[in-house]
């Protein structure tokens, strides 16, 4: 890859791309406008929000601290609970789904067991099953088991990630040479030790990618928790903010302060993910190319 980039850089005259860079500039503005609006407007109090004036610029009163205090104390600090719930669902669902996907992907790629082709074809077919089509029957199954309105109702279905299995299969097939595994076996390493000490380190970029993709999927999930949970103390932040949005729209006049909570609440809720993405980007980019390439 390093050879490629130096070759590319050598064959390039950057000034000819100025129109494209200007185009990129416009695109960046488009993609950042909603963030900018939220950043600006979460500094305002209710009169600033509704008093007309420039909606894309600050008012004289910049009151992030006051709004933050209101956000985290409203309704007994329910917002912080939602953030913690989201974190729990993202970590438990993400880690669990990743462990299962890594093992299954490796198993499919490196062992010729009975019914392997058939099972893998079924997993690939499952990529096309609409996830939301599963929510209604899962809800009824869980309600029979008394699992609805518990954290398990959200975490357990999140463990399923067929795309993660597909990604890990492709990556393990190409990045883990059979010869290396055989050499380890000849040296007397057991199958599990071979997996943990030889295969797993080689699969790391794809593991990080699958972890990030499944954690994001759990964090972003809305339909599943919306259906499964009725106690708002178990809500993730997506369902919680949706709830506030509904309340605020229903009685617009009475609860103007709720709007500023929703605005600041959306801003605060995206910060952890943005940090996770930027700090981990070196690790996941390598893995992401796999799914598209082959």
């Amino acid at each position: 890859m390093t050879d490629h980039s130096s070759l590319r850089a050598g064959a390039r005259r950057p000034q000819r791309y100025l129109p494209m860079q200007i185009l990129l500039g416009f695109l960046v503005i488009y993609f950042l406008v909603p963030f900018w609006w939220v950043i600006v407007n979460s500094s305002k109090d209710a009169p600033g929000l509704f008093g007309g004036g420039n909606t894309l610029w600050f008012t004289d009163q910049i009151d992030y601290l006051g709004n933050l205090r209101q956000l985290f104390t409203y309704d007994g600090g329910i917002y912080l609970r939602w953030i913690l719930n989201s974190t729990l669902y993202a970590i438990a669902g993400g880690v669990g789904a990743t462990v299962l996907a890594v093992m299954a992907g490796y198993g499919f790629a490196k062992y010729r067991f009975a019914a392997r082709r058939f099972s893998f074809a079924v997993v690939l077919g499952a990529l096309m099953v609409p996830a939301t089509a599963l929510v209604i029957p899962t809800f009824i199954m869980f309600s029979r088991l008394g699992l609805t309105n518990t954290v398990w109702a959200v975490i357990l279905p999140s463990l399923l990630n067929p795309f993660g299995v597909y990604l890990m299969h492709v990556y393990a097939r190409d990045a883990v040479p059979d010869e290396l595994l055989d050499a380890a076996r000849v040296d007397g390493a057991g199958e599990l030790r071979t997996f943990f000490q030889i295969a797993l380190p080689l699969m790391r970029p794809a593991v990080v990618t699958v972890l990030l993709l499944s954690a994001v999927a759990s964090w972003n999930n809305y339909f599943l928790p919306l259906a499964m949970l009725s106690d708002n103390r178990l809500f993730p932040v997506t369902v919680g903010l949706g709830l506030w949005q509904g309340i605020a729209s229903a009685n617009n006049a009475g609860t103007t302060s709720l709007w500023s909570l929703i605005i600041l609440g959306s801003l605060v809720s995206v910060i952890p993910l943005i940090i996770a993405f930027f700090s981990l980007q070196r690790h996941w980019r390598g893995g992401l190319s796999v799914g598209g390439l082959r």
């Binding site: 093992m103 490796y106 009975a114 599963l134 029957p137 199954m141």
Partner: peptide, 24 residues
């Protein structure tokens, strides 16, 4: 190889049956 293969794929298989095949 059958055993090891199913050992690695099995846990995902259980989740797959419980939360995809069964609900469907």
């Amino acid at each position: 190889e059958h055993l090891m293969g199913w050992l690695f794929v099995g846990p995902f298989g259980v989740v797959f049956l419980a939360f995809l095949i069964a609900p469907l």
